[in-house]
């Protein structure tokens, strides 16, 4: 079989990032529960967690950061976009680094369950903490406290569904393995 030189996989890398970014945007905007501070909570963390488990830190960072940033702009919260980009980007990186620690490159989704959970929990903390800091900076630390339980809920649901979905997708669509870089 003709193997593609990894250096020549730019197109695949771009395609992965772009499509997953779009999926994050759609999930952020289509499942929205309005909340006081950040505007809304959503299912975006499911896709970020999923991307982190299957495709590693960089893809997850771009898809998560760019996707939530774009969703903020489209959804009428442009002032949050740069912060979402950084926070969800960092969340993606953390989850992937921990969940996939010790895995060979290009073997997606075979991460151990406890590592996935650990990564997910740390991701939750990064996301919740990040929004608390930025919220405090933008409009006072006391009001930003209100958001903490909501963000924990959102990212927690994200981790649980993310783990389930990454398994069902691997089973339903095995060629996803060949998409890993």
């Amino acid at each position: 079989m003709k193997e593609i030189n990894p250096a020549k996989k730019t197109a695949l890398q771009i395609a992965l990032m772009a499509v997953l970014t779009a999926v994050v945007v759609v999930f952020t905007l289509m499942f929205r529960v309005p909340t006081p501070i950040k505007g809304y909570i959503s299912l975006c963390d499911v896709i970020i967690t999923f991307s982190a488990f299957l495709f590693g830190p960089w893809i997850a960072a771009i898809a998560g950061g760019l996707g939530t940033g774009i969703a903020d702009v489209i959804g009428g919260f442009p002032q949050w976009a740069p912060f979402s980009f950084l926070i969800h980007g960092a969340q993606g990186i953390i989850i992937a680094l921990i969940a996939r620690a010790g895995l060979k490159k290009g073997v997606p989704g075979d991460a151990k369950l406890f590592k996935m959970i650990l990564g997910g929990v740390l991701g939750m903390l990064v996301m919740t903490g990040g929004y608390y800091l930025v919220g405090g900076f933008l409009h006072g630390f006391k009001p930003a406290l209100v958001e903490i339980p909501l963000n924990l809920l959102q990212s927690g649901v994200g981790v649980v569904l993310g783990i389930i979905v990454s398994r069902t997708v691997l089973k339903a669509y095995p060629p996803v393995r060949s998409l890993a870089l």
Binding site: I14, M17, A18, V19, T21, A22, V25, L66, G67, I74
Partner: peptide, 11 residues
Amino acid sequence: ALVLTLAFRFI
């Protein structure tokens, strides 16, 4: 920039 454009195409 291309990733950004493509994301908008796919949304």
